[in-house]
Design a protein around this nucleic acid. Structure first.
Length: 296
DNA sequence: AATCAAGTCAACCGCATTTAG
DNA sequence: CCTAAATGCGGTTGACTTGAT
């Protein structure tokens, strides 16, 4: 038969996450790594469903996430990718490793859609494009995916000593679902991502939290059973970051599940073959949309 | 200062796909 | 192979914030 249910919906808490919950979650993931979300609520005592835990981690607590202030480059990237891939935010997000699909989606809906609407008289609408896809269109879309993946690979490989991470969880995406893991170029994420950046995220949240509700002091952070966070908490002048002693100590104890390299030989060969065939190096950002249109 | 509208974004919901028993 | 749970994804909602009146 099947498996036991992931979470019974009675007694499941909803709504915004508190810093305390964040800390519990990060602590748990620090120890066990992301994945097996079903076990998270039971093992941590969080009154959240597994989905909620996963979402919280992937969208806010995961290391290397940047929030707000989309750069012009990112903006252009999103616009291009949206034109290429449609509303496949996870796929788009995989090209912007510091951004989450949710973030990109929100940004698109709140900023870019409007912007494009103004600029080109509503051309930016995507719905008709991505819906009602015929079989042939699917094939072409797949081709486009492969094509764009190759472009991204070219770009990535052309850099000096790039650092790749292959997102082990949600950010792997349809583009690469054919067992090829697209290496993500990381521009300004720390070279060796640790959970410290998660704690920074939490610290930031804590700050906001304390701004909002002066009553909930940092003492609230102490309590929980299997976390020893409180000892490691300290304020830093820059971002009020949680002290790195935590991340350092934990890192020593547990393997950090981020690949920093990936075997590229096959990919390189594939790219080189393709590049030879195509004969262009293709700056992804400069790829004309007209080229895309041809594919569809 | 109060009220309302518009904008933003975190989180939820439901569906599709993948995976485990 | 079948069934059901787990997971991932995109659409949508609603609480909160900000700006205008």
């Amino acid at each position: 038969m099947g498996r036991p249910p992931c979470c019974d919906k009675v007694g499941v808490k909803k709504g915004p996450w508190t810093p305390e919950e964040d800390i519990v979650l990060v602590s748990y993931i620090q120890q066990h790594g992301p994945g097996n979300w079903r076990a998270v609520p039971t093992n941590t005592g969080l009154l959240r469903c597994s989905k909620s835990c996963r979402l919280r981690w992937t969208n806010y607590l995961r290391p290397g996430i940047r929030r707000g202030n989309f750069t012009e480059h990112e903006e252009k990237m999103i616009i291009h990718l949206q034109a290429l891939l449609g509303n496949r935010w996870a796929a788009i997000a995989s090209y912007l490793p510091q951004r989450t699909d949710n973030d990109i989606k929100n940004y698109w809906n709140t900023h870019l859609k409007k912007k494009l609407g103004k600029g080109q008289g509503g051309k930016g609408e995507d719905s008709s494009e991505t819906k009602s896809i015929s079989k042939g269109q699917w094939e072409r879309r797949l081709q486009t995916d492969i094509h764009t993946a190759k472009q991204a690979l070219c770009e990535a490989l052309s850099l000096d000593k790039p650092i790749f991470i292959s997102n082990s969880n949600s950010n792997s995406n349809s583009v690469m679902e054919s067992n090829l893991t697209l290496p993500q170029r990381v521009d300004s994420v720390p070279p060796t991502p640790t959970y410290a950046s998660s704690t920074e995220n939490i610290a930031r949240l804590l700050q906001n939290w304390m701004k909002k509700s002066p009553n909930s002091s940092s003492s609230a952070v102490s309590s929980d059973s299997n976390t020893n966070f409180s000892a490691g908490l300290s304020s830093s002048p820059s971002e009020g970051a949680i002290s790195t002693t935590f991340s350092a100590s934990v890192e020593a104890d547990h393997e950090v599940k981020f690949e920093t390299q990936m075997p590229l030989s096959l990919l390189e060969k594939w790219l080189l073959d393709d590049a030879a065939a195509q004969g262009h190096e293709g700056d992804f950002m400069d790829m004309a949309l007209g080229e895309t249109a041809d594919l569809f």
